[in-house]
């Protein structure tokens, strides 16, 4: 088992995870401890299974017909795949930001308060407070505070992605999963998102898939390397980038894979 060398609390623990799409096995026997309130980067070449791994952490595979997950994933010691666990509640506590911004075709305000509303908050004043707090935390408040009722689709791509982050924060999750959140954005918008992630780890556990090694180096505390459906190696980010233990990790870091 590969473990992050640390005395930190373990927020999520993955044990012997397999993911199948029909008869194709996309993830083989992955094991990982995710430390609390740190940024964990998942890197590897395209098709290595890092997104598949990420989507197993909040039971998104439940939505895909033909996808099957085996093994254990625990959040604070509780197996999120156990029979009496509600995937809806799992996703309440483990939020997700996607590769492409996916705001709902509603107003900016309605996007942010979507989560709180479905979880039962109806008081308009408290919803407004929650929206402001989340938008501030996502570094978007100043840009949108005068046009909260405008359509979210009018925002730029970078703003939309920060809105999607604000939308997740408004649910007050404990873990935030990010699937290449900056891949569709320009460099300026990307750096804003990266600053934001560094800020978020004070309160949240962040697990981020990235195709950019530079990005992983800049923002993460821990890095895990995936290849061909396997989790090859995990360690502190500086270890992985300077002294990888596995030959395959080294080859990737030094640019011998695409």
């Amino acid at each position: 088992m590969v473990e992050a060398k640390t005395q930190l609390d373990v927020k999520m623990k993955v044990v012997d995870l397999d993911v199948f799409y029909g008869s194709f096995q996309a993830m083989k026997n992955a094991n990982l401890d995710v430390p609390d309130r740190r940024v964990m980067a998942l890197i590897g070449p395209s098709g290595c299974g890092k997104s598949t791994f990420l989507r197993a952490l909040n039971r998104m595979h439940d939505l895909t017909a033909g996808a099957r997950v085996e093994g254990n994933v625990t959040l604070d010691g509780v197996d999120i795949y156990a029979a009496d666990i509600d995937p809806v509640t799992v996703r309440h506590r483990i939020g997700m930001v996607f590769q492409r911004p996916n705001p709902f075709p509603k107003s900016i305000f309605e996007n942010v308060v979507y989560g709180p509303k479905i979880h039962g908050e109806r008081n308009r004043k408290r919803l407004l407070e929650r929206a402001e707090k989340s938008l501030r935390a996502a570094a978007l408040w100043d840009e949108v505070k005068d046009r909260l009722n405008r359509s979210a689709l009018d925002l730029s791509g970078g703003q939309q992605q920060r809105l999607c982050i604000a939308r997740v924060l408004a649910v007050e999750p404990e873990v935030i999963l990010m699937d290449e959140p900056a891949s569709a954005l320009d460099p300026i918008a990307t750096s804003k998102i990266e600053d934001l992630i560094s800020e978020l780890k004070k309160q949240y556990t962040v697990i981020i898939v990235t195709h950019s090694m530079q990005q992983a180096a800049r923002i993460s505390d821990f890095t895990s390397f995936f290849l061909l459906g396997e989790l090859v190696e995990v360690g502190t980010t500086s270890e992985i980038f300077t002294r990888p233990k596995d030959k395959r990790t080294e080859d990737y870091i030094t640019g011998r894979y695409g």
């Binding site: 604070d76 010691g77 009496d84 509600d86 509640t89 309440h92 506590r93 007050e172 404990e174």
Partner: peptide
């Protein structure tokens, strides 16, 4: 996790 706001079981929702 003593600071957990809610458990994961079906009863919550």
């Amino acid at each position: 996790a003593p600071d957990v706001k809610q458990d994961l079981s079906r009863s919550r929702a």
